[in-house]
């Protein structure tokens, strides 16, 4: 009773709860798990879409030859770099709006068989660009990881696949996207071309699918090869 008359225990008082639990603890957690990771990558440059679009992967240049009319309709009058920048932005927006990132992850973990399936583990440099604000790491993997999946299939495969995935892979549970196409259901429209350009771009920053060690010395030095890679190297050394 006396405690109540005095205005209570500090731990039960509004001002204390509000300031310490509400503000201080939250701020502390933000520093510990938000700000520290931020400063650990503060030296990495964040690349814009325009910077990245200066070099177009072969798959994008091929789109122009494969679907000339659709390409002209979507990106007519633009230089390759401008067209690719436009395609990346539209494709990225579609990737988010259609919730692709809720069934496809974009991160390769150092465990759980990921490196054997998808290549070496993800590294920070891969994500420091405008299209990773916010990053599309994902938390569920119903379909395969896509971070370096670009180039695995041809543009034609994607055109057939997006229209109705079970046509290409009978057990696929991926939805159909007929609105990525013109009326004929065969020619991709701007959305279709863009989403294909975006998924084909993923991973274009690594030299090839098998050789996924990025040529940045300090990453190379901190890189522990996977079990599979170690055994391969051991075999090579034995020979």
């Amino acid at each position: 009773m006396s405690r109540v008359e005095k205005g209570g225990f500090p731990l039960e008082r509004f001002s204390f709860v509000f300031l310490v639990a509400g503000i201080l603890f939250f701020a502390f957690a933000f520093v510990a798990s938000g700000w520290l990771p931020m400063i650990s990558v503060r030296d990495l440059e964040v690349r814009t879409v325009e910077q990245m679009a200066q070099e177009q992967p072969l798959s994008f240049l091929l789109l122009k030859d494969e679907y000339p009319e659709a390409y002209t309709k979507a990106f007519g009058g633009m230089s390759d770099a401008e067209a690719f920048a436009e395609a990346l932005r539209t494709g990225h927006k579609t990737y988010i709006g259609e919730a692709c990132w809720h069934c496809h992850s974009q991160q390769i973990r150092p465990w759980g068989g990921d490196e054997h399936r998808y290549g070496r583990r993800s590294f920070p440099e891969e994500y420091h660009n405008e299209l990773n604000m916010p990053p599309l790491w994902g938390t569920r993997r119903i379909g395969p990881d896509l971070i370096r999946r670009g180039g695995t299939h041809s543009n034609d495969w994607h055109v057939a696949h997006f229209f109705n995935p079970p046509d290409v892979n009978p057990v696929s549970v991926m939805p159909s996207y007929p609105w990525f196409y013109e009326e004929d259901g065969l020619t991709p429209n701007k959305t279709g071309l863009s989403i294909i350009a975006y998924v084909q771009w993923l991973g274009s920053w690594v030299p090839s699918l098998e050789e996924t060690v990025y040529e940045i010395p300090h990453i190379e030095s901190g890189y522990e090869p996977s079990t599979l890679e170690r055994s391969r190297r051991a075999e090579e050394a034995a020979e």
Binding site: S33, Y127, P135
Partner: peptide, 18 residues
Amino acid sequence: FVPQYLVAGNAAGPLLGL
């Protein structure tokens, strides 16, 4: 707001988790 407008990639990812 922070991961959308201010930071990218590895700096933004932890905030999504938070």
